[in-house]
Design a protein around this nucleic acid. Structure first.
Lengths: 115, 115
DNA sequence: ACTTACCGTAAGTCATGGCTTACAGTAATT
DNA sequence: AATTACTGTAAGCCATGACTTACGGTAAGT
């Protein structure tokens, strides 16, 4: 379903309220009403957040009468995790070589076209 | 320095342009001008993005004449990674038990206060 | 000393998106 | 069939924040 889109995942998890909805699902599946009950926003707001979360592959739902029980979908988090891990190794490497370079080489001072 | 703030990190990486700046640093350290050169926004915009990235513990800079050479700081990514890993294990567990519950139990139908 | 390269910040504009209040629709209870 | 519980969507309002231009400030070259 949700293809490789860590971008959407990041943008989705950036909102505090939406992340709060998501964190509530960490404990286990909940209906929309149950999710909205403890939050400082209205139920439709939660519904919209859930739509965004689902679009990012972070949650799924299952019908239960008129209720929609939402629960976490590992797909979205998985993609974000892969991206982050790749970045992490590169970052460590880059950081180490940077520190080494900073200690070894003195400061450059010329005004020249640069990279 | 930057304490436990995966929230700030997420909100920081949510912007596409800012993420583009960050990804450019993946290859290695760059000056502000060099970073802005290939991007579709002005240099001050890049400067502001770098400020946000630094505030989130994602980058640091080192002076080199009048240039400021920025490079990735593992701190911010590390925190995000820790949060994500914790969430990931919980999500897997929650997902598995959810699928099991969905298969085992038939649909509930009563209109009763719920959770 | 003057000029040039490089950068951060201020002020102001404008689009994005999160929230609320309606409204419409389905399923279960009586 | 009528009512009640539960939800998704539409329209509109409003704050957040990303971007631009303009400016001031420092360090290096001449």
């Amino acid at each position: 379903m949700a293809y490789s889109n860590y971008a959407k995942t990041l943008q989705c998890l950036s909102d505090p309220t939406r992340r709060q909805v998501f964190e509530r699902l960490r404990a286990g599946p909940r209906s929309v009403g149950a999710l909205a009950r403890g939050l400082p926003v209205s139920r439709p707001a939660v519904s919209q957040h859930l739509k965004a979360l689902k679009n990012a592959g972070l949650v799924t739902h299952r019908a239960e009468g008129t209720r929609r029980v939402y629960y976490i979908d590992p797909a979205g988090l998985g993609e974000l995790r892969r991206w982050l891990d790749g970045f992490w190794t590169d970052a460590l490497e880059s950081f180490k070589s940077e520190v080494a370079a900073a200690n070894a080489a003195p400061k450059r001072k010329k005004h020249e076209p640069h990279d």
